[in-house]
Each structure stands twice: as C-alpha cells, then as structure tokens.
C-alpha cells in the first residue's frame, strides 16, 4: 500500500510546487517549452554486501519546461554503472529514464536504481563515492553520493 501511495504523493507535490514556484522561475514564457532544469538530491548508496556490486539511489528534479532523459552514468568506484528498472521481482537494465518537465525521476529501493558493477573497492558506510550523470539534453551532473548503512532507507532515516 505504501508503494502505491508514494508515486501519487510525489506527483501531487510536484504539481503543487509548479503552481507555487513556476511564476518566479520561468518568468513570462508560460511554462510550456523551455529547457529542462535539472537538480539532483537525496543521493545515497547502501553499504553493499560484497565488492561485487552495489546499488545507488537519488532523485533528479526537473524545474524546466521540457523532458530530459538520464542516459548514462559513471563512477570513480565502478567499472560499470547501469540504470535499472524493477518490475515485480525482476530488475532489468534500461537505456534511459525520463525526467518529466516540472517533475522528477525518483530512484529508490524496490524501484528504479543505479547498479554499480566491477567495483574497485567495497564502499563502506561514511565514505562518499562520486557519480556522474549524463543526460540527453542537459549538461552532465556530478554527484557526491554518501555511503549509508546497509539497512538505510530515506523513510526510516537510518
């Protein structure tokens, strides 16, 4: 049930933010069109079990008037980072994920996530890994992703 509610709540929050903040941001262009304006937040990596693979989560917020797509990811600690989508119990690599105009792309546990493979070391709680996100339209964004406890989730906070 919680899973079902969350996306709806996020969408509503996004829509409200648009109503509240759109005016001051985009001036007179009416909100349609305009470039994607991306920012990244809430990034974390749960400390992985082994040095074989790890997951990463973050939220990309788009305050602009156009969609963008997360197309590729790289990191200092991994030979390969891929974007995965989870459906039911299976996760599968995807080419890209859309960040809708005036919306957000939320990567979170149980859902879409970044998968780090060929790790150069095992990330430990308290450390930070560097991740570069590349997009179809916007400039790349570098993110400092903190490594949290293996059981960390943003909802419990520990």
């Amino acid at each position: 049930m919680r899973r079902r509610l969350a996306p709806t709540a996020l969408v509503i929050a996004g829509a409200l933010a648009l109503a509240g903040c759109g005016g001051s941001d985009s001036g007179g262009d009416g909100g349609s069109g305009g470039e994607a304006k991306l920012s990244v937040g809430s990034a974390y990596m749960p400390q992985p079990v082994s040095d074989e693979m790890a997951a990463g989560f973050l939220t990309v917020t788009n305050k602009g008037g156009s969609d963008d797509e997360l197309t590729s990811v790289s990191s200092d600690i991994a030979g390969q980072v891929t974007v995965h989508e989870t459906t039911g119990g299976a996760m599968q690599e995807v080419e890209s994920l859309t960040i809708p105009a005036h919306g957000r792309l939320v990567l979170r546990t149980g859902g879409d996530h970044l998968m780090f493979e060929q790790l150069k070391r095992k990330p430990k709680e308290g450390q930070t890994v560097t991740v570069e996100l590349r997009f179809a339209h916007s400039d790349p964004v570098e993110v400092e992703m903190p490594v949290k406890a293996a059981t960390y989730t943003p909802t419990t906070g520990h």
């Binding site: 996020l10 509503i12 933010a17 509240g20 903040c21 943003p154 909802t155």
Partner: peptide, 20 residues
C-alpha cells in the same frame, strides 16, 4: 499548500516522509 510545496520542491524526502 503552495507554500508547503515550494519548500519541499527542493527536498524530495519530504513528500515521502509524509506518506510514511
């Protein structure tokens, strides 16, 4: 509502926290 939304627009944790 708009006020709240402006604040939480930058912090994606907030809507999630409310739901939880």
């Amino acid at each position: 509502l708009t006020l709240t939304a402006c604040g939480s627009g930058d912090d994606s944790n907030k809507p999630v926290a409310v739901v939880s």
